[in-house]
């Protein structure tokens, strides 16, 4: 009855958010089916306000369909959010696991290293990295991963530090199993719950950061994205509010849903931490 799965699906907000994310993912995957033409292509007169029957979300200064850009932009946002989180998890889990398992000097060195990365304001760090590597989808993914792994590594380290003292770990050590095997098969699976929750929230943060970078003109010039759409619409605020309004709403909905799913997962995976009823 109280399995994590049933706890999660008992949380109405989280389930609705998950369904919402599924729809966004489907739209992103089917972008080329829904809007077969390139989102950069002119489809009508410029500055058309949103209208039923016409262009649902209006057109921009070059007569491009905002809705088409939105659907194609979802790909970029989701792709960058997922891939950069995956890379950040690899780095963060690796460093955190080694620091927490071995402790001592290794831990000290790795944690000072992590602290340095954590001190630098992440958006500014990401801006510098993308600016120097040149704006492309790869450099954006690298930049977001480089600035987001420290929180994972601190979390994983804390988990490993408590778990390595457990009896089942000590028994594996007595058996003479190599350290990497103990970390991978004995400790890591038990440390995954908080990592999964953090990962969900990291995807949300990554999407926000990508939109910020694209807004500043550091997006991949070949790919349309929500942040780019808002940035391009900045100077047209008075003439065409819809150009910046809808991409912003798309970001909010996606990030909000990811946060709600993350909270649902957190409550489901750590039922002990769930705020007690009075």
């Amino acid at each position: 009855m109280n399995s994590p799965l049933s706890l999660f699906f008992g949380n109405r907000a989280a389930v609705i958010a998950l369904a919402c994310l599924a729809v966004i993912t489907l739209l992103a995957l089917g972008a080329s089916l829904i809007y077969p033409q390139s989102p950069w292509k002119m489809v009508g007169a410029p500055f058309q306000p949103p209208a039923w029957g016409g262009h649902l979300m209006g057109t921009d200064m070059l007569g491009r369909d905002i809705a088409a850009g939105l659907v194609h932009g979802a790909r970029v946002s989701l792709l960058i959010g997922l891939v950069s989180t995956a890379i950040a998890l690899l780095i963060g889990v690796g460093i955190g696991a080694v620091a927490g398992y071995f402790g001592g000097l290794v831990d000290d060195i790795l944690m000072r290293f992590t602290e340095v990365f954590q001190t630098i304001p992440s958006l500014i760090f990401a801006i510098v990295l993308v600016a120097i590597m040149g704006p492309s989808i790869n450099s954006i993914v690298i930049a977001i991963s480089v600035v987001s792994w420290p929180s994972v590594s601190r979390l994983v380290r804390a988990e490993f530090m408590t778990l390595r003292r457990r009896e089942y770990v000590e028994s594996s050590q007595v058996l003479g199993l190599p350290g990497w095997r103990i970390m991978l098969t004995d400790i890591l699976p038990n440390a995954m719950a908080p990592v999964i929750v953090t990962a969900t929230l990291m995807v949300a943060t990554a999407i926000l950061m990508e939109s910020g970078l694209s807004f500043l003109g550091l997006g991949d010039p070949d790919m349309i994205s929500w942040g780019y759409q808002i940035g391009a619409a900045r100077t047209m605020l008075r003439a065409a509010w819809w150009m910046s309004f809808f991409p912003g709403v798309a970001i909010i909905i996606t990030v909000l849903c990811l946060n709600l799913v993350g909270e649902g997962l957190s409550d489901a995976l750590n039922p002990n931490l769930k705020r007690k009823k009075p």
């Binding site: 910020g212 808002i230 912003g248």
Partner: peptide, 18 residues
């Protein structure tokens, strides 16, 4: 709080200007 937490700063700024 949830809503503000999910809103890009720059977008909120633009909408406030509007």
């Amino acid at each position: 709080a949830l809503l503000f937490y999910a809103t890009p700063l720059f977008w909120m700024g633009l909408m406030a200007i509007l």
